[in-house]
Write a protein that binds this DNA or RNA. Structure first.
Ligand SMILES: NC(=O)c1ccc[n+]([C@@H]2O[C@H](COP(=O)([O-])OP(=O)(O)OC[C@H]3O[C@@H](n4cnc5c(N)ncnc54)[C@H](O)[C@@H]3O)[C@@H](O)[C@H]2O)c1
Ligand SMILES: NC(=O)c1ccc[n+]([C@@H]2O[C@H](COP(=O)([O-])OP(=O)(O)OC[C@H]3O[C@@H](n4cnc5c(N)ncnc54)[C@H](O)[C@@H]3O)[C@@H](O)[C@H]2O)c1
Lengths: 235, 235
DNA sequence: GTCCCTTTGTGAACCGGTGCACAAAGTGGG
DNA sequence: CCCACTTTGTGCACCGGTTCACAAAGGGAC
């Protein structure tokens, strides 16, 4: 086989594709557990909840790892996707803010499974510092920089109140971290080169509410006939 | 002022716009608290972390609610966005699966604030049923249909283990619910007309890991020169 | 080796969303 | 009343992503 630098591999995988690779990986792991050796794009697409043309195009960005007439080798594809996503190494994650949510995350086994390891818990509350959660000691936020360095933390999960999030983010970034998963409902300002992803429960619910309203409006014959807002706010 | 049926309002707001409205709303609420009466698209855009042309186009989909040369009236815009999102009514939410995550969500004050009310907690574990959390009694999953009907639940938050999620979703949908926020790491199969949104921590971390890997690769001079996978899996 | 069947990989049309750039609209000052 | 200034609302070009549809590639039967 010629070692052609597959046209796709060399530079940049589309962001939308990256976001779906974990889905494929999960589906593939399920299949591997069930002992499946190969899978067609059609079957994998169904398992991942996407259409098969999209799946094939996504995979084509990683290289040409299928066999025409047969499909994809499950184990091999798992390896290739894992490698692409950087899951062949393990990542030390620190959780900052050990309240309701931080505790739930710390106790969650699900993401330790693949490449991620909770390496530190940090909080500002002296009441919480020193607690033992999921086999880890909660450390004081003053130790942030030291802990990040000492444990080789490269991803930080922010689960502090909104008011503290920006300030903590600044420190974390100053300490060299460039990947943050933010649960606090604020827009974080960060310098170029830092990746932020946010999870926002309240936004998700509001989006659902929007569609729910549309659905019930449709039942009852539209929203009280076009524009009918109370004159309360008279601008 | 003429009551022209603003060209935009009547049908469909782009999905991308809907997803940003909650962001604008949050920024506006902050401004209202600080006593600001009007705001320009530029300032609001900065607060929401988007560009101002996008903001204006988004708002134009709701109608023409600004004043040229001045900006937008903060209170009025809050009202219009809230109404569009369906936050002027309140929504009864049920949380199914009261484990680590379900408890954190139940105790979370942040989304009760705007239109959403946790109306029920349900679990299958007899050990958990009967617990009193955040002023609510945990009810048995057998009561699911009755509880949904009795409390007028229209949005369900799924926080069960992955294995139970599809089964619970089926029951919830059969009971008439068409809006689900799913935390379990599975692709749910649902009929047409049912809206699912998912929150998947593990996917977010994997996306971060992908970019983190790229960043460190760039430092160290690319990934071991193009294609160099162990021949372990020899396909 | 030849033929038929399956399934991949991708060119190309299409679609939704983004951002520029500007005309239109409104404000305030003189 | 007019002019200078501000800021909205949007036409338009562009871009990333999706989907269709099919040629090319491989497998297996004979
Ligand atoms: N609980 C949920 O279900 C949920 C859902 C969505 C979003 N959120 C958001 O997640 C964040 C955490 O929520 P929670 O319910 O766990 O809140 P919480 O109040 O229970 O926990 C916050 C923790 O952060 C700590 N903290 C405060 N300031 C800090 C600082 N400067 N440095 C380090 N730690 C600090 C506090 O001591 C506390 O332990 C909030 O921003 C919240 O809006 C929570
Ligand atoms: N904890 C986290 O931080 C976290 C993060 C991301 C995703 N998740 C996902 O969220 C879900 C819940 O996580 P968790 O950590 O709270 O798990 P958990 O095991 O602590 O809680 C699950 C709860 O669901 C209940 N349950 C099981 N089957 C049920 C059924 N058929 N009907 C009703 N209730 C049922 C269990 O009794 C238990 O109380 C899981 O799917 C997990 O993968 C959790």
């Amino acid at each position: 086989m010629i070692r052609r630098l597959s046209q796709a591999r060399e530079r940049g995988i589309p962001e939308a594709t990256v976001a779906r690779l974990p889905l494929y990986l999960r589906a593939l792991n399920g299949m591997a557990e069930r002992g499946l050796a190969t899978v067609s794009s059609e079957d994998l697409a169904v398992a991942a909840g996407v259409n098969s043309a999209k799946l094939r195009k996504d995979l084509s960005h990683l290289g040409s790892y299928g066999t025409r007439g047969v499909g994809y080798d499950v184990e091999y594809l798992i390896y290739q996707i894992s490698r692409e996503l950087g899951l062949t190494q393990d990542w030390a994650v620190a959780i900052v803010g050990v309240g309701n949510l931080g505790r739930a995350l710390a106790n969650y086994g699900g993401f330790v499974s693949r490449g991620f390891r909770v390496a530190a818990l940090l909080d500002a509350d002296p009441e919480v510092v020193g607690d033992h959660i999921a086999g880890l000691n909660v450390e004081h936020i003053d130790e942030l920089e030291a802990v990040i360095k000492r444990r080789g933390v490269s991803i930080v999960v922010l689960a502090t109140p909104a008011a503290a999030a920006q300030q903590v983010a600044d420190r974390v970034i100053a300490a060299g971290v460039t990947s943050i998963l933010n649960f606090a409902p604020v827009v974080l300002a960060v310098p170029e080169g830092v990746d932020i992803r946010k999870v926002d429960l309240s936004i998700e619910l509001q989006i659902l509410a929007f569609h729910e309203q549309r659905k019930t409006d449709r039942m009852t014959g539209g929203p009280a006939m076009a524009e009918e807002w109370p004159e309360a706010v008279d601008l």
